[in-house]
Design a protein around this nucleic acid. Structure first.
Lengths: 202, 202
DNA sequence: CGGACAGCATACCGACCGGTATGTGACTCA
DNA sequence: TGAGTCACATACCGGTCGGTATGCTGTCCG
């Protein structure tokens, strides 16, 4: 790995990246349990020896996917929530629309994320839950900030707002079709609009 | 089956009901693919012979669960949506709150419902999707009715409202805990409230 | 130039898993 | 009373799966 940055005459991408990409595709399509490691390595054009050279187990692949999603979303949320010059209602709308667009843009990841938590080993599951919790708390903080400022209604429970909205986001993986009539931006705008109306002072 | 309506000295309930109950519990806990028929029959106190006497296959059990959920929810929605004397906004709120309470009341069913669609055979999957579609259409009709009457905002897409809300409902199976601080009624009231505020004229 | 090691490929294993074929006792009915 | 059938139990099967042990080859370093 250290002698040449990227093999010049490789098939397409480096082997571990190819394995992860094909695993993502297959996990999203057939589900984790119904995808065999044999199918993954065949799709990537290698053998099991290669997979177990780079990954310790099948659910290491899954854990990688979860880590990728959480890192990306956490980073984007932090960037948006941190704009202290922007009114909180605008930041909430922007964060909501952004997570919808990003979830649709990586629809395979979204499908996997909300369906395959239980297939992780207990320790990895715990780690993922902790990260997701931190993410939700950051999102919830926006709602609480809006309530303190008086722009959002006091009677809604911030944690329920978050669970409500992210239920809808996770569900995207179930019904959204890339070739459907709605663009990611349209869905994002409507979802963010509904979220805003559900919390702001009438 | 015809000679005695219910065996008086049976273990607890009739065998097929017990099988379905244990299967539901196990599917919700470990997932469909990670529950073996051996585990199901052991939990029910019988053997595989009994299971395959009453059910054609493992995914017949799953299909039964889906049918049970859809029949129940469709029936309840029809009862609520049909109250023509009640204003549409009230009917929407009542239907929304009811599906939340019912989903929490049958939390195992809810967990299974939103996770295990892909484990059904293609034909059964098609049938379930068709039923769920009819259910969503009935719910969507309430939104459209409110828009025609002018009590709901025109700019929200009714189908997106439905996908938004039922995403949150399905997600209940992931985060709601029976022993948590929130009662089913509290969640139902808040969810219904958020739904109403997200669609009604300001 | 010769080990050492990374980067795979090959071959193989034991543990299930869903499903089936067959047996068997209790009960019904003619 | 005996033939038939329902309601299961028992035993078994072929196939698949995640994982591993081992072999091979090219490259880099000393």
């Amino acid at each position: 790995m250290a002698r040449s940055t990227t093999p010049p005459k490789a098939t397409a991408a480096a082997v571990p990246q190819r394995l992860l990409a094909e695993a993502t595709r297959l996990f999203a399509e057939r589900g984790y349990d119904r995808t065999s490691v044999q199918e993954i390595v065949e799709a990537a054009g290698v053998t099991k020896g290669a997979l177990y050279h780079y990954f310790g187990s099948k659910d290491d692949l899954l854990h990688e996917i979860y880590g990728r999603v959480l890192r990306l979303q956490m980073q984007r949320l932090e960037a948006i929530a941190g704009k202290e010059a922007t009114p909180v209602a605008e930041r909430l709308v922007e964060a909501a629309a952004d997570v919808v667009v990003t979830s649709i843009g990586n629809l395979d990841d979204t499908k996997i994320f909300f369906r395959s938590m239980h297939q992780l080993s207990p320790e990895k599951q715990k780690a993922v839950r902790a990260d997701r919790r931190r993410y939700h708390e950051k999102f919830r903080a926006l709602v609480e900030e809006g309530q303190r400022e008086g722009v959002f209604r006091q009677e809604v429970r911030p944690d329920l707002v978050v669970d409500f909205f992210f239920g809808a986001v996770h569900h995207l993986g179930t019904w959204y079709r890339e070739d459907g009539p709605l663009s990611a931006g349209q869905v994002a705008a409507d979802f963010a609009d509904m979220l805003l109306h559900s919390v702001r002072q009438p």
